[in-house]
Design a protein around this nucleic acid. Structure first.
Lengths: 163, 163
DNA sequence: TCATTATAGTGGCATATACCACTAAATTTT
DNA sequence: AAAATTTAGTGGTATATGCCACTATAATGA
């Protein structure tokens, strides 16, 4: 770690950086496959969650995505602007807004979904089906509140100040 | 996958989305640990790469990070503005600019590095040391040019058009 | 019921990251 | 060597994402 270690894989030593690097690469790969639909992989993901969760509130969507609520609001804007999504105020609780696909949104999602399946199978084939499933498990584990709790509370040695 | 499957883990089925979700979570966790240094985890990562690679050109840095060159340029700006980094034109090839830590940059990096070690050990403890190493391997594999090549060329069934 | 507090969203600002068009400089062709 | 091509960076624009301050509304407590 002294800057002159020849074989030292500087890109690989940090879990967080490694994750981001892989995410950039994979995002690129998925984006390319989804490109014909005009959607980015992130946008397909957003539409999918809204689709699968049936008009979720922004809050629950943000929680599920482990994303900041305001960040979610921002990322939804282009999709709303393009008429794929709409926000509907909840009847019971007027603070709440529910996201839903428009007709165009559903069509676009279906179109993108076909491309996504191609990307998905490419990934599984390139990475290995089992490894792929294991990877998703690992990712879900990291994204779980439980993991965050363990990470934060970790009483391990390493300088964890108790204050 | 029809929207009403109760137990369906909608957040988990897509490798790309799963990766992003985990990346958001982990980024948050690392950011919190690094916060006292005033650096985000991404910025610590940038400084580290520059530190470990000894004044790399922006191009080689971008390649190593699997990042778009212009994106790299943009993310470096705040660090340059804050005096942690500087870009020095290469002598031999006047197209090239090399990034280097300033004195302040080195100090800041050292400060952040201590915090990073804490985050690193927390992650290892929470996720498991071996799983952690395996994860970094998996991430590095995905980030490798080889993987991208395989992904793109994949002749698997699923609609891969040969054109 | 009224004041306090908690919850859901919005808007502004900042960083992270990509694409495109453009410039400058080096490399390759002819 | 002049022209064509490739390479390295920059600046603009757009999406992705986080924090903070602020608003509206609901839930709680005195």
């Amino acid at each position: 770690m002294d800057g002159k270690t020849e074989g030292f894989e500087s890109w690989a030593y940090c879990s967080n950086s490694a994750l981001r690097r892989a995410t950039r690469q994979l995002g690129q790969l998925y984006d390319d496959v989804l490109a014909p639909s005009g959607l980015k992989a992130t946008q397909y993901g957003l539409l999918s969650q809204i689709h699968f969760n049936g008009n979720p509130s922004l809050k629950s969507l943000a929680d599920g995505l482990v994303m900041d609520l305001s960040a979610l609001g921002h990322t939804l804007k282009p999709l709303i602007r393009d008429g794929l999504l709409e926000l509907v105020p909840d009847e019971k609780d007027r603070r709440v807004k529910r996201a839903g696909l428009t007709e165009i949104g559903v069509e676009k999602w279906q179109e993108a979904h076909l491309l996504w399946r191609e990307a998905h199978s490419r990934f599984d084939n390139a990475f290995g089906e089992e490894e792929s499933a294991a990877l998703r498990n690992a990712m879900n584990r990291i994204a779980s509140p439980d993991f965050a709790k363990t990470f934060v509370a970790d009483p391990a040695k390493g300088g964890g100040s108790a204050s």
